[in-house]
Amino acid sequence: RANRILSREQLLNAIWNFDYAGETRIVDVHISHLREKIEENTKKPVYIKTVRGFGYKFEEPK
């Protein structure tokens, strides 16, 4: 779903398929691990972008 912004809650529900009652920051940890695997520079990600105050989006590099 390139260029679509997804909240942490949406990601939790879509990926783990359950309502998570705890802290949604676990998504941040998983995003960090994904970035380590696919990004050249994790400080300036090209593929997985953070949308402050909402969640994340996947972008195809130009």
Rank of each mutant, 00 (worst) to 15 (best):
Arg1Pro: 12
Arg1Ser: 14
Ala2Asn: 14
Asn3Phe: 07
Asn3Met: 10
Asn3Lys: 12
Arg4Asn: 10
Arg4Leu: 14
Ile5Lys: 10
Leu6His: 14
Leu6Met: 15
Leu6Ser: 13
Leu6Lys: 12
Ser7Thr: 15
Ser7Trp: 10
Arg8Lys: 15
Arg8Ala: 11
Glu9Pro: 04
Glu9Ile: 14
Glu9Gln: 15
Glu9Met: 13
Glu9Asp: 15
Gln10Thr: 13
Gln10Phe: 10
Gln10Pro: 06
Leu11Pro: 08
Leu12Tyr: 03
Leu12Arg: 11
Asn13Thr: 14
Asn13Asp: 13
Ala14Tyr: 12
Ala14Arg: 10
Ala14Asp: 15
Ile15Cys: 09
Ile15Pro: 00
Ile15His: 03
Ile15Asp: 00
Trp16Ala: 10
Trp16Lys: 01
Asn17Gln: 15
Asn17Ser: 11
Phe18Met: 11
Phe18Gln: 12
Phe18Lys: 13
Phe18Gly: 04
Phe18Val: 06
Phe18Ile: 08
Asp19Thr: 11
Asp19Glu: 14
Asp19Pro: 02
Asp19Asn: 12
Tyr20Ser: 04
Ala21Thr: 14
Ala21Cys: 08
Ala21Val: 10
Gly22Cys: 06
Gly22Met: 06
Glu23His: 15
Glu23Ile: 15
Ile26Ala: 07
Ile26Cys: 11
Val27Met: 02
Val27Gln: 00
Val29Gly: 08
His30Cys: 07
His30Leu: 11
His30Pro: 00
His30Gln: 13
Ile31Tyr: 01
Ile31Gly: 01
Ile31Ser: 00
Ser32Thr: 06
Ser32Cys: 03
His33Glu: 12
His33Thr: 07
His33Arg: 15
Leu34His: 02
Arg35Leu: 01
Arg35His: 01
Arg35Lys: 15
Arg35Pro: 02
Arg35Met: 02
Lys37Gln: 12
Lys37Tyr: 01
Ile38Met: 05
Ile38Pro: 02
Glu39Asp: 09
Glu39Val: 03
Glu39Pro: 03
Glu39Trp: 02
Glu40Ala: 12
Glu40Ser: 11
Glu40Cys: 08
Asn41Ser: 09
Asn41Glu: 07
Asn41Val: 12
Asn41Thr: 07
Asn41Met: 03
Thr42Gly: 00
Thr42Pro: 05
Thr42Arg: 11
Lys43Ile: 01
Lys43Glu: 06
Lys44Thr: 05
Lys44Ile: 04
Pro45Ile: 03
Pro45Asn: 03
Val46Lys: 11
Tyr47Phe: 14
Tyr47Asn: 04
Ile48Phe: 03
Ile48Val: 14
Ile48Glu: 02
Lys49Val: 05
Lys49Tyr: 00
Lys49His: 09
Lys49Gly: 00
Lys49Arg: 11
Thr50His: 10
Thr50Leu: 09
Thr50Tyr: 09
Val51Ile: 14
Val51Ser: 03
Gly53Pro: 05
Gly53Ser: 06
Gly53His: 05
Phe54Cys: 08
Gly55Gln: 07
Gly55His: 08
Gly55Val: 09
Tyr56Pro: 05
Tyr56Leu: 05
Tyr56Met: 09
Tyr56Gln: 06
Tyr56Asn: 04
Lys57Gln: 13
Lys57Arg: 12
Phe58Asp: 01
Phe58Pro: 01
Glu59Lys: 06
Glu60Cys: 08
Pro61Ala: 03
Pro61Lys: 09
Pro61Asp: 06
Lys62Asn: 09
Lys62Ser: 08
Lys62Trp: 04
